[in-house]
Computed example of a mutant assay.
Amino acid sequence: MRNYLKGDMPETIRTRVVKATGYANLVRRAAFAVFKGKVDPKIVARDVAFLNKTIFEELVKRGIGKDEYIRITVVGDYDEKENAIKWSNLVIERFIPDTELQDILKKVKELEELVSKLKKENEELRKRMKEEELARLKEENETLRKEVEAYKARISILEAELEKNQKERDELRKRLDEMSKRTEEARREVARLRGVIRAIMDLASKALKE
């Protein structure tokens, strides 16, 4: 449990608004004022130096420039057992001058206008891209339609050629059948004529013998 000097409670140090370059002296003076007669000045000086170092590191971490205005609030609790001031609840408030605030508001307005402009341009671009995409798809569809029509025409030609070839094959087969039939008839006629010739020769041979 914390120990206090004769019931003293933790002290709150709160500086006035000051440039960041001047915070250390204000914190130092405020600490000496609140702990006067309660804590050895050497201890106050030592622990305030540590506090100011902590504040400086926080300013750097938060990116607060040396010309910016701030106000420091911190709680100091003297621990008699450790003979040291324990610092807690450090608050660094950052203040923006009216002129700088006006500049910031102006820049915010400009950014809002820029965002609005970019949003409008983005919508127009999306619309234009959509129209271009539709035109491209329409063109591709027309190209595909023409290709399909060309394939259909080619298929019709091939079907006609197949039908023609089929008819030619049928006609050729018919002619071959007729030629085979005529060949068979010619073979029979030749055989008959040979028989006739043989008979005539036999008759002639008999006539010569008589």
Rank of each mutant, 00 (worst) to 15 (best):
N52G: 03
R16C: 04
K119S: 13
K138W: 06
E123A: 12
E68Q: 14
V48F: 04
I157S: 13
R182F: 04
P97D: 06
G63C: 05
Q166P: 00
I92P: 02
A207D: 06
V34T: 10
E11C: 13
K106L: 08
R46F: 09
I85H: 00
V44W: 04
R169D: 02
G76Y: 05
E112Y: 05
I85K: 04
W87R: 09
I43R: 13
R126P: 00
E100D: 13
K164E: 14
M9H: 11
S156Y: 11
K66Y: 10
R154P: 04
N122W: 11
K6E: 05
E100A: 04
E189C: 02
M179W: 07
M201R: 09
A199K: 09
E147M: 11
L125P: 00
I197G: 01
L90Y: 03
N52I: 09
A207S: 08
E159A: 08
F95S: 03
M1F: 11
K36R: 14
A199M: 06
K53I: 03
G195T: 01
I55C: 05
A191G: 00
N89Q: 11
E124N: 10
R182T: 12
L137V: 06
V27F: 03
E124A: 09
R62S: 11
S156E: 15
A30K: 12
T15V: 02
K174R: 14
V34Q: 04
E57H: 02
G7D: 00
L26V: 00
E124Q: 14
M179K: 08
E189H: 06
K127H: 10
I72T: 07
R175H: 07
D47Y: 08
A160F: 00
I157G: 00
I64P: 03
R62G: 01
T143W: 07
R126N: 09
A160M: 08
R29H: 07
K66P: 09
V48N: 02
E178P: 00
I155V: 15
D40T: 05
G76P: 07
E68Y: 01
K127L: 12
A49M: 02
D79H: 10
D77S: 13
T73S: 11
N122V: 02
I43D: 01
I55K: 06
N83M: 14
T21W: 07
A20E: 08
R154A: 15
I200S: 00
K130V: 01
K127R: 15
N89V: 03
K109W: 07
K146R: 14
D103V: 02
N83Y: 02
A30M: 13
S156Q: 14
T21S: 11
L101N: 07
L90A: 03
E171N: 15
V39T: 09
T21D: 15
G65F: 05
E149H: 04
R29T: 13
A153D: 07
V17Y: 01
R145S: 07
N25Q: 14
V44R: 05
D67G: 08
L26C: 03
E57M: 04
G37N: 08
E184P: 01
A186I: 14
R175A: 13
E110F: 06
I157H: 10
K146I: 07
V17N: 06
K6D: 03
E184W: 05
E168G: 02
N165V: 01
T12A: 10
I92S: 08
K81M: 06
A191K: 14
R94G: 01
E140K: 12
R173T: 13
